[in-house]
Design a binder for these strands. Structure first.
Lengths: 376, 376
DNA sequence: CTGTTAGCGCATTCAA
DNA sequence: TTGAATGCGCTAACAG
């Protein structure tokens, strides 16, 4: 009914004409600025009759804001990135922004291309979660006129807002948990080591093993060719050819599920023969049977913090850059806790009827789910 | 180095000044329109020195195009929508468009809100995959000045481009396959019946059962409260309380994985005691053990077709509306094929050493993966 | 081939 | 409070 004459798109000028007021007044009424009740009514009526809707493009050109925020992630196929996207979208939508998605794939060039595009000003800011943080990327980030928040690790000297997971600590949670369960030959199923997460996982593993007084045998470490389920299958097969772990820490949940498949195909059981710990604690962690114990690296929290950081900077371009670190947590499920008594390996001490039921090492962790992560 | 004086943003006017040419000439060079080699060089040099980057907003205002396409899906948590999003992004990116994502959640209102926003003209077109196609949504769709393509089913009299899956046919593939495997008591684990996919699944199930000469017992049909893994768990528990199926067709892969969990918890085996068929054939279908036989409803093909349909319409606003239907396919995996001889139920005929290995009912199906789906 | 000019639709400064 | 006028940065007529 109120759609008005569909002829041409109606603009503010036409509304003004139709209402018999100046274009400036029409603009004011539409934007809720002070105006006499009578005039406001006239304008509103006219706008209604003409089915007027303000034009976003013109407005953007005028005010210098698009109300759009870009999110660039490496791999939308990974549930973690989906979760992050979801959270970023939630936060920025509430603040009146739209989400422009750039799924740059694993392609480094298209990542750079997108960063180049950024200066065209089709978005007000960017949240970037790069798989590889190359020098070129860093260079582009410094050069941009637009606010950027990085999810991941940045060189020390770069003054850009960022938020990262403490993934070494996460690995330590996993290794400690496995050690507590009596596991001694703890292997690492990693992704590519030349990626940001891959490098962090490896470093964390080495340090955690050291801490526990275990030797990190090279045969017990393997890098899958990417962070996918299939890569997990083949990499685990290779791993089992050259070593006999009683536990595997996986760099990601998809890899872990791949490992699960291979272990079974080899005639062994999880967790009795080999315990498994995934990482990311994504939606899919609870799907397999046994369900997957997983290190929660706070992907949702990171996404939320990143979004808020960007919103803050959008409001104040000159704020000092922040570097946030999100504390990991361990979600214990079935894949790491054997119900049968451990037969192999020693530790004389019983460790209680069954390890603690759920989360293990959570820190002060945004209890209400709504706390201002950026203030920590 | 080539970043130029970072002072203020450089515009075409400044480039023109710096090069000593008219602003129009500068524009032409930038846009690759004919110009003398000498002039072109001067402009390009100036642009480079000033670090000039054309402004997307101004350009959009002028030409009336944003080069953005919106995708509105109900639930980004569902792998199918992620796959669709991925594909849409791929196709439109290649055509020079950016993707604006609207994850409207299950919230009907925010869906409507987004459709309202559409007329602000921040995107050139929309691809919409609504969970529920209400009268209000249809009304908004007709009212919009912007091209829209719907993924899903639309009322007959609405002249809007759309592409849908033939999900009754998909269910039939599943039921027929199960019947061939000797299953007779085939249940349906559906999602909410008041959704577009839920309604289609139910209708398809009833008709397929009828076709096979089976009775579609009401006790053997259940509707989970949404299309999630958890809902699948609880709904299956209820289903098993009131009936004893030897096979379950699930409206979606997540539901199927939930069913798998519940069946196991009840002490039964898949596929020996109960065969399982999922739907969507999404990434997660191969994760469980046994891996999930699943009806491929062509989500990627639908997404691709929708994107192309929209691009076509963007190029020609007055083209006649098309309604495309994508043919389903069955991907047979482990969850539906028992390795042991069926003991219960009859069919005297052996059905070969083991059912056909992979896809079952594929039609003429875009062999190169690149065929023009819209021309069928 | 190149320059001049007029808007795209809107927000906003300045007068009245 | 309201109206007239300016320009955001760019492209596309139209002249020359």
């Amino acid at each position: 009914m109120s759609a008005g004459t569909a002829g041409r798109r109606s603009t503010l000028v036409r509304v003004a004409e139709h209402a018999g007021v100046s274009i400036a007044s029409a603009s004011r009424v539409v934007n809720g600025l002070p105006a006499s009740a009578e005039l406001a009514a006239r304008v509103r009526k006219a706008a209604d009759e003409l089915g007027y809707v303000p034009d976003a493009t013109a407005r953007s050109l005028k005010v210098g804001r698009t109300n759009q925020i870009a999110l660039a992630v490496a791999d939308v196929g990974n549930p973690v990135y989906v979760a992050m996207m979801h959270e970023v979208n939630r936060v920025i939508t509430k603040a009146g922004y739209r989400l422009v998605l750039s799924s740059t794939g694993n392609d480094a060039q298209s990542q750079l291309d997108f960063l180049g595009e950024l200066d065209r000003g089709f978005v007000d800011g960017l949240i970037l979660s790069p798989l590889r943080m190359t020098a070129e990327v860093v260079e582009r980030l410094r050069a941009t006129r637009h606010p950027v928040v990085v999810i991941g690790t940045l060189p020390e000297d770069v003054a850009i807002d960022s938020v990262r997971a403490d993934s070494p600590r996460g690995i330590a949670l996993a290794v400690d948990h496995l050690a507590t369960q009596g596991r001694r030959r703890i292997a690492l199923l990693n992704g590519p080591v030349d990626t940001v997460p891959g490098a962090a996982r490896l470093a964390g593993y080495l340090s955690a093993m050291d801490q526990q007084g275990f030797v990190a045998n090279a045969d017990a470490q393997i890098a899958a060719k990417d962070f996918t389920y299939r890569a997990g299958i083949t990499a685990t097969a290779r791993l089992l050819e050259r070593s006999s772990p009683d536990a595997i820490v996986c760099a990601n949940d998809l890899l872990a599920i791949g490992a699960l498949k291979t272990i079974r195909a080899a005639g062994m059981r999880v967790p009795d023969d080999i315990a498994l710990v995934g990482m990311d604690d994504s939606d899919i962690a609870e799907l397999p049977d046994p369900s997957l114990t997983s290190v929660n690296l706070g992907s949702v929290k990171r996404a939320k913090a990143a979004a808020k950081l960007l919103l803050r900077r959008l409001a104040d371009h000159d704020a000092a850059a922040k570097r946030l670190v999100i504390e990991p947590t361990l979600t214990v499920r079935e894949s790491s806790v054997s119900t049968r008594r451990r037969t192999a390996a020693s530790n004389a001490e019983e460790m209680g009827p069954a390890a603690a039921p759920t989360t293990g090492g959570q820190q002060a962790a945004d209890p209400a789910g709504d706390g201002e992560a950026t203030t920590r």
